[in-house]
């Protein structure tokens, strides 16, 4: 997994609440058996006039010019601002795969849906939770300043604006450790294989019907 340490990047504002994973990556793209190649289809229904199909060439598709990802000033964004309950709905990991494939590796929102939040950490994306008031500041500053960039520092757990405002955020220690070091958590868990086996032996005595 790609490590996440610090990021100074262009910011794109996704100013709507309850953005669901069906919107982030529509169902037809879930037929792929790969982890990559979803970036061109990120927010497909909002981004294009036509209906996208897996593996199609998107370079000449008609775009919805008013959609935020299509605005020239936000091209190359690496940080996305969002509103409450971002990533709700389906557990599809294709959603973070599409976001990271598009080039965004940090999403900042007042709240995230649980499964999406978890999926981000498995794919080198840092989801940052800030307060509604802090989000309002970031939305206003992003929209009123072309080329607006933020600095995100995972080790320090801070988001810093161009004029030096610093917003702190919380992150679980284990997830932080894995993300900073780009660690594969399966490998880490398998270091505890003995503990899993001991648990299974004990549990098999207590509840043998679980092991048939």
């Amino acid at each position: 997994m790609q490590a996440f340490t610090t990021l100074e990047g262009l910011v794109v504002p996704m100013d709507r609440a309850n953005v669901d994973t069906d919107a982030i990556i529509p169902k037809q793209f879930l037929k792929s058996i790969k982890r990559t190649g979803y970036g061109p289809f990120l927010f497909d229904e909002w981004r294009y006039e036509d209906v996208g199909q897996p593996e199609m060439d998107c370079t000449n598709r008609p775009i919805r010019k008013d959609f935020v990802l299509n605005q020239p000033r936000y091209q190359g964004a690496q940080i996305m601002l969002a509103r409450e309950n971002f990533g709700c709905g389906s557990s599809r990991e294709h959603a973070p795969w599409a976001i990271v494939d598009y080039g965004v590796s940090c999403v900042i929102a007042p709240s995230f849906a649980d499964i999406f939040y978890n999926n981000c950490f498995k794919n080198g994306i840092l989801p940052v939770v800030l307060s509604d008031a802090e989000m309002d500041v970031l939305f206003v500053e992003t929209e009123s300043n072309e080329g607006y960039k933020l600095n995100v520092d995972l080790a320090a757990q801070t988001v810093t604006t161009p004029n030096g405002q610093v917003f702190g955020f919380e992150v679980d220690e284990f997830r932080k450790h894995c993300l900073i070091n780009g660690l594969d958590d399966i490998g880490l868990t398998l270091q505890q294989a003995d503990k899993i086996r001991t648990y299974e032996e004990k549990r098999q005595q207590e509840a043998p019907w679980l092991f048939v």
Binding site: R35, S91, R92, E93, P96, I115, N118, N119, K122, N123, D185, I186, T189
Partner: peptide, 9 residues
């Protein structure tokens, strides 16, 4: 419900 990385885990 879990994502694919956790399915693998």
């Amino acid at each position: 419900g879990i994502g694919t990385s956790e399915v693998e885990h």
